[in-house]
Amino acid sequence: MSDLRDLYQEVILDHGKNPRNFHRIEGADRQAVGHNPLCGDKLTIFLQLEGDVVKEVSFQGEGCAISTASASMMTQILAGKTIQEAEKLFQLFHEMLTGDPSVEGDAEGLGKLVVFAGVRQFPVRVKCATLPWHTIHSALQNKDGAVTTE
């Protein structure tokens, strides 16, 4: 059970069950769709910008506890960040989950997102956690089309 508790931390379970900012933004500045063909999960990210600053992020879709919690916490943490800061977080988050485990991640920079560190022990689940981030990355870059984890 201890590994499982690393993966399914209380915060993750809470966000998985009661996702925050779980709605669409009508007339959003940008929007992107992410897709994980492995589990059939799909989510849409809505993004409202004010100049260079992320004013509001929301999402909709269906996914596992990990991807839902990841999306939910991402929408909270990104509000008020600049595009550059958001991209930096994406990079840190990605490194925490896929980088060399012997290298200490930048826990401070990630703030609350460190609860996802346990996901690294479950390689097939890493994509669940990173899907919302890949998707927002694409929205920030204003790339057209859908993102997939494959």
């Binding site: 999960d41 990990i66 479950f122």
Partner: peptide, 19 residues
């Protein structure tokens, strides 16, 4: 989600398919 079911069962050595 089935994916979460699959991960937890795997911890007990149980292989099912989810998706």
């Amino acid at each position: 989600h089935p994916h979460d079911i699959g991960t937890i069962l795997d911890k007990e050595g149980i292989a099912i398919r989810t998706g």
